[in-house]
């Protein structure tokens, strides 16, 4: 039964987690810029640069173009930020179970991940600029492109849990409680590794980072979707970007690296939660550097046609290959 205290607890946890998520998401952006600068033999901005940028953007004039649809144009950044924060509430942080865990599963997380991008598309179309319109169309195309590999990863994980007889295979709490690597033989190991690499390529596309930043393409689209945004609205989009980075890292941790450090240290209760949360953030930082920063510094941008080919043909095949290896493995192991 839902009691008042439970609702209050959930709301309080949600507020705390949102504030933490925003702060840590911006820090992730700062780490990303710093590491990228070091890779190019530069000193790079301080880690606090995204906070400084945000403060500046909030103090600047907020221009709404004359031919924009003002209501959608202003709502888009808020929806983008709100939906990325909601995904965060569905993710387990270390040993702390998801705040809204009882109300949704992996499938819901997959759909929620599409909402910030959809909000950006709506904002782009509403800004009434040809650059933003092209950017929004490109964003839609790349969204359609990267859903297939992402879906094959989710299906593989759910299949694995289902074939081992776990009752709620799509719930994130059961994904975390049963690390996928422990449930497969050598063949499935290879399959999961292929899926992990696929996920590492889906993350930069989900975050619109180079080489998949075709919707924002600074050189030919002048910022694409974001071209008409300034001041407060642009700042909100920056925050949403940070939270989304955290969410993608958190999802990768939950699916592929769900181990906690507190059992090793023999901690319990709140101390364990704190230590695990710190360990979780460290894992997110490492994954983010490997799958976003290194790729974006080392590669140039793909054309939009190349993005589609890459995701539908190569990564789509890789995802299905990994999925079939996992299924084959569980059949051979006699689990089904």
């Amino acid at each position: 039964m839902l009691t008042i205290e439970m609702i209050l607890m959930t709301v309080a946890a949600a507020v705390v987690l949102s504030v933490l998520g925003i702060a840590f998401g911006l820090l992730l952006l700062g780490i990303d810029r710093r590491v990228s600068a070091r890779m190019q033999a530069r000193i790079g901005p301080p880690l606090s640069q995204p906070y400084i940028d945000l403060k500046k953007l909030l103090s600047k004039e907020n221009i709404i173009p004359e031919n924009a649809v003002a209501s959608i144009f202003n709502a888009a950044p808020i929806i983008a930020l709100a939906s990325s924060l909601i995904v965060l509430l569905y993710l387990p942080i270390g040993s702390m179970m998801p705040v809204l865990g009882g109300y949704g599963d992996l499938i819901l997380v997959m759909y929620l991940l599409a909402v910030p991008a959809l909000a950006m598309v709506a904002g782009g179309f509403a800004s009434g600029s040809p650059y933003a319109t092209i950017g929004a169309q490109r964003e839609m195309v790349s969204m359609i492109a990267y859903e297939l590999p992402l879906a094959s990863i989710v299906i593989a994980v759910a299949w694995l849990l289902y074939s081992s007889g776990i009752t709620d295979p799509f719930a994130l709490s059961s994904v975390v409680a049963n690390p996928v690597w422990t449930m497969v033989g050598p063949l499935g190991m290879v399959g999961l590794f292929v899926l992990l690499l696929t996920f590492a390529w889906v993350s930069p596309a989900e975050l619109s980072k180079i080489p998949f930043d075709t919707p924002e393409a600074e050189t030919e689209l002048a910022g694409g979707i974001l071209v008409e945004y300034s001041g407060k609205n642009l700042g909100l989009f920056t925050v949403a970007q940070g939270v989304k980075t955290l969410v993608m890292g958190g999802l990768a941790v939950a699916i592929f690296f769900p181990w906690n450090i507190s059992p090793l240290l023999g901690l319990t209760s709140y101390a364990a939660m704190a230590v695990d949360a710190i360990f979780f953030f460290l894992k997110v930082i490492i994954l983010m550097i490997l799958s976003v920063t290194v790729i974006r510094t080392g590669l140039a941008r793909f054309r939009i046609t190349h993005v589609v080919t890459l995701f539908w043909v190569y990564l789509g095949l890789a995802g299905l290959f990994g999925l079939s290896l996992v299924i084959l493995d569980s059949v051979l192991m006699g689990g089904f």
Binding site: R42, G44, I63, E218
Partner: peptide, 15 residues
């Protein structure tokens, strides 16, 4: 490396 002072070249005058 002007980015160490937070200087960035942007693509849109709105930014």
């Amino acid at each position: 490396d002007p980015e160490r002072f937070g200087v960035r070249l942007v693509g849109s005058p709105k930014h």
